[in-house]
Design a protein around this nucleic acid. Structure first.
Lengths: 223, 223
DNA sequence: TTTTGACCAAATATGCATATTTGGTCAAAT
DNA sequence: ATTTGACCAAATATGCATATTTGGTCAAAA
């Protein structure tokens, strides 16, 4: 990871902040390195002291957002009472992703923001998520957090599908809020997946933490 | 609705069959009227005896598919034991839509198949579905088919979201089949939405039949 | 009366020269 | 040692003439 040449980390962060602001607003293709430099209050050359291409800068930005988001989900899983359950995990995940315009764009495969060629890479991300979810669900069933008779693969696919729809469909103009939808979705999953007597929620936390770490490591090694 | 000048209905159907085959394969933009004529075994002029533009032909094709699909869903709602429930309805709907490549493309907003400008119209379709679902869920709760404490708007949005994901996400290469996913999704919704003692399934059928008819009528009057 | 397919205007695609923008560099400034 | 911004090649955008395709028509054929 990281063809970054991090010397002055504070400045690097400032540049990433500027890039985030501009790219989430205008998109990768329409944002120039010069504009990022201007927004960050540095020269264009300074940017190339940190990364050796615009794409590397974007990768660094994406990576920062991924790790931030994953950390947020991890904190949710580890501290929330429902953090060890599937519905708790999904709630934490949807909330964390909603907080990051870039990660939201990644999930929504938003070409206007991510640029043309950068979409390709993220296609395999779906497969990664499916595998990680499926395996986690299998283990969660073994420790009694989810019903033993669910089909892990099918449920994993459905979790992906509903997440995809969530980030792609605009909310109808009504009293509906993002958080309300997330709560109701969590409620649906809780009722559908929880066994008569739930158990092993702490084991569930461990499983989900590992799943998140697994997903991150799969992202860090591009392929 | 229908600037069709239907004289010879058998031939019109044959032309629509040809158009369906070519458009679902090559897309609206890449399919020419001449090719449709050739595939249908008629002259190009003959097509314009039925419809006065390529777009009108496409509208007729789309409308045929919509009514077919809706009829299929109606039959499911009216005959299936679970037809009066939300999960039964969604199962019937997903299956019926999966049977039509064109309607699937509509749900997936597949620009390659639907062509450039035709996407615009269908954007309001999402709003229509949301309203119809929400109102149907409200009534279904009143007759005891779904739990009275659900949020109809949120659930309506989630049904749209999961359907959207279903038609947009490819199935992972595994033992997962379309029907299996539909069954598991139906199972999830059944567990999540069904009250302790369910009642009024026949009233539910009527509500859902009306909802479907409502949706069709909203589609027929474009706007 | 019904159907056809040659025909045409309009739209779309292609090729190409020119103009502009932009990612990336590096000698000079700090 | 660090940072800058003028500079440049490459990519992208623009304009335009030409070529091709295609939606739609209608006089003639069946």
């Amino acid at each position: 990871m990281s063809d970054t040449i991090d010397r002055n980390d504070e400045r690097a962060q400032r540049i990433l902040d500027a890039a985030e602001k501009l790219i989430t607003h205008y998109g990768y293709d329409k944002t120039t390195v010069g504009e990022i430099a201007q927004e960050a209050g540095v020269s264009k050359g300074a940017i190339y002291l940190h990364w050796n291409s615009k794409e590397a800068l974007f990768d660094a930005l994406l990576w920062r957002e991924v790790t931030r988001t994953m950390k947020s989900i991890l904190a949710y899983v580890e501290t929330d009472p429902d953090g060890g359950t599937v519905h708790g995990f999904l709630k934490g995940m949807l909330k964390a992703i909603s907080d990051s315009a870039l990660i939201t764009a990644t999930y929504a495969q938003d070409q206007r923001i991510l640029g043309k060629h950068l979409l390709r890479r993220d296609l395999s991300l779906l497969d990664h998520r499916f595998v990680v979810y499926r395996d986690a669900l299998t283990r969660l069933a073994q420790v009694g957090v989810v019903r033993p008779d669910i089909n892990p693969a099918a449920v994993a696919y459905i979790l992906n599908a509903v997440s995809y729809g969530f980030f792609n469909l605009p909310l109808p103009v009504s009293t509906l809020s993002t958080n309300l939808v997330i709560e109701v979705l969590g409620d649906i999953l809780e009722r559908a997946l929880t066994p008569e007597q739930i158990g092993g929620v702490d084991a569930g936390r461990r499983i989900l933490v590992e799943a998140i770490q697994d997903l991150v490591s799969r992202l860090s090694t591009r392929g």
